[in-house]
Simulated scan of single mutants.
Amino acid sequence: MKHAALAGMVAGMLASAGCSPALERFERTLAARDSATQALGEWCSTRKIAEPPVIRALADRQAGEPASAAVRSALGVGADEPIAFRHVRLTCGDTVLSDAKNWYVPGRLTTAMNATLETSDTPFGKVVAPLGFHRERLEQRRGRAAECPAGTVLSHRAVLKLADGRAISLVVECYTQANLRG
């Protein structure tokens, strides 16, 4: 589905559900991009959340969550394929915009990309942008999904795929109230 059509469909669903205008605009911004990082950067700039509007991924390097059979299936990998996990809080300035869990297939990324993900605060979407991925949304809901912390206003589950259809990542994104302020 084209991004504009998806954004329009999401806007219509949210409007009929009685959502706030800010929540509707935020959801349209997310729906219009394959990269949540890019969408959050645009949102941060438009809403003037921080100057400069730079998105950082504050990684919990101690976090670990094994890939379940469902995660492996969504990624199209067998039981023996290595899966990496990254839990981050995406921020703009000092404002946390998203709490995200990301299971990804290191063997489908470059060595440099894997090193950047393991050692920096660069968001996944920015690191893997040269791969030209697209987002397949599996679930999106207003409010908190089971994996999300309290205060979540939007929850997304998506698979990021290469042009050849191979998945590189399964993400669970939990967007905070801070997105709707201002």
Rank of each mutant, 00 (worst) to 15 (best):
Q140S: 13
V159I: 12
P82A: 05
A146S: 15
R47C: 08
A74T: 04
P52T: 02
D99P: 00
V153C: 04
P123Q: 06
L90I: 02
A32F: 11
K101E: 12
A31D: 07
V127L: 05
K101T: 02
E136K: 10
V54L: 13
A158V: 00
N114P: 03
W103Q: 03
P130I: 06
L75H: 01
E118W: 10
R61T: 15
A100D: 10
D60H: 14
F124W: 03
L75W: 01
E139C: 10
E136F: 08
A145F: 05
A32K: 07
R141T: 05
S155P: 09
A69S: 13
R28Q: 15
V88P: 01
P149S: 06
C44S: 07
D99H: 11
A150F: 02
L90M: 14
G107K: 09
G125F: 02
D34Q: 05
A50G: 09
L23C: 01
R157T: 13
H156R: 15
A32I: 08
P149G: 01
E51W: 15
T122V: 12
A22H: 07
T122F: 07
K48I: 10
N102A: 07
R135N: 00
G107F: 05
V159C: 12
N114H: 05
L58R: 12
N102V: 01
L154C: 09
P130Y: 06
F124H: 04
A112R: 15
Y104T: 00
Q38T: 14
P82L: 07
A146N: 15
A59N: 10
R47G: 06
K48S: 14
R72E: 08
G151C: 04
K48Q: 15
V77D: 02
Q38H: 14
I55Q: 00
P52G: 00
A115C: 09
R56N: 13
S45N: 12
S45F: 11
L154A: 11
S155F: 09
E27I: 11
G64T: 14
S155A: 15
G76A: 05
V105T: 06
S98K: 04
N114R: 07
G93A: 06
E24C: 14
A84T: 09
R28A: 10
T46F: 14
V88W: 03
R56D: 13
A74V: 05
L131T: 02
E81T: 15
L109R: 01
L138W: 10
D121V: 02
I49D: 00
P66V: 08
T111F: 13
A146D: 15
E147Y: 11
V54S: 09
I49C: 06
T116N: 01
A100E: 11
A31C: 08
S45Y: 09
S120H: 03
S68F: 08
A146C: 12
A112E: 15
C44P: 03
L138G: 14
L23Y: 02
A57Q: 04
R28P: 03
